[in-house]
Amino acid sequence: MSARYLARQSAQAIFTILMIVLLNFLLFRMMPGSPDRVNPRNPNVTAEQREAAKARWGLDQPLIPDQLVAFVGSTLQGDLGYSMKFQGQPVLKVIGDRFMPTVLLIGLAELIAIVLGLALGAYTGWRRGGMADRIGNGLSLILYSMPYFVIGMPLIIIFAAGLGWFPTSGMLTAGASYAGPGQFLADLLAHLVLPLATISLGLIGGYSILMRSSITETRAEDYIATARAKGLPDGKILRSHAIPNALLPAVTLIAINLGYVVGGAITAEIVFNWPGLGTLTVDALNSRDYPVLQGIFLLLGVSVVLANFVADIVYGYLDPRVRQ
């Protein structure tokens, strides 16, 4: 792979991240709503107190250039500021607390969905028109079109409230103390099953549909016909000839989706009360917590850009034509 190709991709990525920083600032301030921490309806708060609170958050300064310059300057230094809602905690800490829960949940769900989705797609595509395809593809379409809460709520009602196999919500039993890592792990896994199943189910459809159409296309290629003519067994052709070629579009989808892992799955996290970045986003949006929102969107933006960057590199490696 040429150094020029790498350099061009890196420059693009850095430029995009800078634009994200700028957009982040403007986007939330264009949003209707007020970040006022001081309840305006409080009979016991004077106009001066309200102004003082605004000054403390720098909201009394003009948006451009003062607030913008201060924001870009501190962001470049790695200082994301302090959360307005969460007791003035540093944004990095607020986001940091929610990072691992989300990566654990969505990351695992992606892995499961990728493996099962691609396998399902490859199989149904290969057996196009058959019973397996009809059921598999139908299922994929249904799952693909279902929002997480539609999948999640029945799971809660059946397996948590009904059968009592799993806890309804949360990542750990609230306020529990654990004798050892084993107990902690057991509690975590018990809480993980339903949300993980929900998100995996929701994601499988996308992968499966993509892989199915990709395999269907590949099936018509000459080299498949050649392989058949050579008398190779069906499964062998699928595994060794069709899948490797059909995987190319999937790489892009996987890369983009992995970039979104840190964004969390808002509806799933809300239904399962999962303390991740998705619920944090909603909390921050509701209270117009600009610093936290900026932090989340910066993290999301950067990770999507990075994932795309990696996808470009991998793609370039897989397919020499794109390097030109």
Binding site: S169, I270, N273
Partner: peptide, 15 residues
């Protein structure tokens, strides 16, 4: 709780 639905299920489940 973020969702009252989930809270109600948690009550039903005895959590």
């Amino acid at each position: 709780f973020k969702s009252a639905d989930t809270m109600v299920q948690a009550l039903k489940a005895g959590e």
